[in-house]
């Protein structure tokens, strides 16, 4: 099993950390992983995207051209990346912030109220965690528990309160699918 993933959105939406959490979770499960962030000249406010590959075999190319799985957190990212998803691939989109709707008929599409749920929990900043919960439930690429453990590694400087909030957001996203 190989899952080639692209995550995209605004800078500040936790795109890079979401990718790193998947990579960390995959590694903890003994899988091969590789992660590549876009890096630009702008320090803040630009678009951000990253590729993650999680695989049972050694990862050849770290470059994801046509993803199996796409998670988009904002409108421009949907427009840019939707056409690149593989046939029969999976698309998660942040329904709270994206007004238009995906057009592809040959892929599976999951709307996720990422920001709405995150705000309910108390912080729009954890919308990425909601998305990751849904991702785990649908693709089974990594376990929910691995994601929970991984966010504690990636956000090792955050406090326990933040870690618990992240766990809740992951669970809410997961339950959207396996509710």
């Amino acid at each position: 099993m190989t899952n080639e993933i692209i995550i995209a959105g605004f800078g500040g939406q936790g795109i890079i950390s979401a990718g790193m959490i998947i990579a960390q979770a995959g590694m903890s499960e003994g899988r091969y992983v590789t992660f590549f962030p876009s890096y630009g000249a702008e320090m803040r406010g630009g678009t951000a995207n990253c590729s993650v590959v999680v695989s049972d075999e050694e990862v050849a190319s770290p470059v994801v051209d046509r993803p199996d799985t796409l998670m988009v957190m904002n409108e421009p990212s949907l427009i840019r990346f939707e056409p690149r998803v593989k046939e029969n691939g999976i698309l998660f989109f942040n329904q709270t912030l994206i007004k238009s709707r995906p057009k592809r008929k040959d892929i599976k599409i999951y709307p996720v109220e990422a920001n709405l749920i995150a705000e309910e929990l108390g912080s729009g900043r954890i919308a990425n965690m909601v998305m990751l919960g849904a991702f785990a439930a649908v693709t089974k690429t990594v376990d929910l528990d691995s994601l929970k453990a991984a966010q504690r590694v990636i956000f090792k400087k955050a406090d326990e309160k933040m870690h618990r909030l992240n766990d809740q957001a992951l669970e809410r996203g997961y339950k959207l699918i396996n509710g």
């Binding site: 790193m20 990579a23 590694m27 091969y32 992983v33 590789t34 992660f35 590549f36 962030p37 890096y39 990862v59 770290p62 470059v63």
Partner: peptide, 10 residues
Amino acid sequence: DGLLGQMIEP
């Protein structure tokens, strides 16, 4: 190259 520098792997 820039990719090898920015890439994250185990």
